[in-house]
Write a protein that binds this DNA or RNA. Structure first.
Lengths: 353, 353
DNA sequence: CTGTTAGCGCGTTCAT
DNA sequence: ATGAACGCGCTAACAG
């Protein structure tokens, strides 16, 4: 058995570490108060079984040293997780996602949970790395809006015991709670309204086919056409636009067809805004409808039919679902069966000319 | 000297913990591979000094167990911080702040730093708690847009050794890097342009006086008036509007004055949008100018003069400044002197009718 | 090339 | 009411 490999601490008295005011540890506080680390720990955690006088000495020492308990060490010891929740989205600059983030945080913050953001920028590989990193960091849960249908990384995380909640898209290939919007119904209703107004040739502008919401909304659009006995002319369907300027070009193309549509339905706010610009530029009288509300939608000087829903609630609901799967939380009277699937209802709103 | 207080581990072989697939530890992997924890650690960290055969065995064991290194323990041991950066803002739903968040994250993520969001909702107490919590969590730094001039909590954090970078507002009462926008110059230029167009009575709509940017922009507005020899009529100045509907009301009041202003300058996009609604509702021909660009500003059917700047760069610059103060990072050729103060330039943009 | 020792900072036994 | 020892999971420093 070898001797002591390490030199013992140098002298006594100085705060052990060389750092001037870097970080005071519990033992620093204890030493300064002339007690053991244990007693100091008790005081700082408001354990009642401490002599009042001792308590004051320790508190004074802690204050003097500017002591902050090291949450890292504390959590490691308690094994209760990190108090962190990962939020994985594609583009935080999109108001839709920033509202989601805010909704999530508003629900989790009161529970002492912090939200760490992960922006994937539509990149599946980035999403994979992100999720892996979050799992390694031992987050208490993940709320994600996955980019596509390949969700094996999320399934893996869930399998490893990390609660996963999906927002705006359902889990694919594994079980998890999720909050959705009634994409199909909303799109169908909006399209039906255009039809009711006499439109027979209705164009569709939407996100790439890989995006769940986009395809659901496309289904809704087609369903409305079918119900009305209208043909589904594929020339009128343009998928793949992610940014307004792409949507503007696609809309312009549709308007340039020999038999141009008399109305457009857009599957999200990026496409609606792009289509609006196209209509405006060409002074076209084409009717416009779209999914998602957005600021100033009422001020565009154009009649506009929008499918709206409570976008804040989307984030809050996701946060609540996740909270249920988190350890150490108020045991619900009736623990709902997982996986749960919430669907937010939509509403049609007419913005005036 | 007392004996062993704790019972030794039960048997041998089973993964120590009762959790089925809860969390495999390094020692679980080591046992399964028939090596010591140290060797397993080396393999998983790609330390070259391991026998290839052993390496493979360990890797196989790790894969079989779905092993993930516990970042918590790892960071605690390495003492290198948490790899987390706190972002403190007032309202993530405001596009301004979400872009900031995205900019920050885009710069920090490549360095393996994750951004944890903190939304204060304009509440100073919340901001205090938030900062304290972030410090306790041992974040590697804090980027903040403080609500007011009372920044003692941030000063305390900085004093405790947590790098602090302010965005959009300068540090008050302590030293810290910051990224600002040329609030004064931008506001002065916009106001001057209104004056150049012949306006003599120009109203001002802005945030509460406690908000730094608001008062700077007010100063700029007043400076332009003074330079032109115009009187500073306080009846034309309305501060305190945070939301568009408040701004709309304030604008309506100004327009109802006996001698109403013929132009309005708004200190931020919330106020500009509110003012726009007021003008639109009253069909007023009052000219409009404002600070901050925003989506669809060009589509309002009204001439609009806006002070714009690179809002993404604001976040990126803040992220870069913080990164410089973070341990273990590429030593800059010329370590810039702190505290640094960056000021982003502004530009006037005219949106057509 | 591999194993042993020690300890990051804290909290939970158990003992006094 | 207080303290000693031990371990959370991991790795830097030393042996062999």
């Amino acid at each position: 058995m070898p001797g002591t490999p390490h030199e013992p601490e140098s002298g006594a008295g100085a705060p052990r570490s060389g750092r001037p005011s870097g970080k005071a540890t519990l033992r620093d506080v204890a030493e300064r108060a002339g007690v053991s680390a244990m007693t100091a720990s008790r005081v700082l955690r408001d354990d009642p079984r401490v002599h009042p006088a001792t308590r004051d000495r320790v508190r004074a020492a802690a204050a003097a040293l500017g002591y902050r308990p090291n949450e890292l060490a504390r959590r490691l010891r308690l094994g209760r997780g990190t108090g962190l929740v990962g939020l994985v989205v594609t583009n935080l600059a999109n108001p839709f996602y920033s509202r989601l983030a805010l909704g999530v945080d508003s629900v989790l913050a009161p529970d002492g949970l912090k939200t760490v953001i992960g922006n994937t920028g539509q990149d599946l590989d980035a999403e994979r790395d992100l999720v892996a990193d979050l799992v390694a960091r031992r987050v208490d849960g993940i709320i994600a809006v996955p980019v596509g249908n390949d969700q094996r990384h999320l399934a893996a995380a869930a399998a490893e015991g990390v609660p996963v909640v999906l927002a705006s898209r359902p889990p694919e290939g594994f079980a998890a709670d999720c909050v959705l919007v009634d994409d199909f119904g909303g799109a169908r209703d909006a399209t039906a309204r255009l039809i009711a107004r006499g439109h027979r040739r209705i164009g569709f502008l939407g996100s790439p086919p890989t995006v769940y919401t986009g395809t659901e909304r496309l289904r809704g659009y087609r369903s409305a056409l079918a119900e009305a006995g209208l043909p589904a002319d594929e020339r009128y369907v343009r998928q793949g636009q992610t940014q307004p300027h792409q949507a503007e070009r696609a809309a312009t193309e549709l308007l340039g067809l020999p038999d141009p549509p008399t109305a457009l339905f857009c599957s999200n706010n990026r496409n609606t805004i792009g289509a609006f610009r196209a209509l405006r530029a060409t002074r076209s009288a084409t009717a416009l409808a779209g999914f998602d509300d957005f600021e100033l939608a009422d001020a565009l000087g154009l009649p506009l039919t929008l499918v709206t829903y409570d976008s804040d609630e989307l984030g809050r609901a996701a946060g609540r679902l996740l909270r249920n799967h988190t350890r150490d939380h108020p045991p619900e009277p009736t623990p709902p069966p997982s996986p749960q699937r919430l669907v937010l209802t939509t509403e049609l709103v007419e913005y005036g000319a």
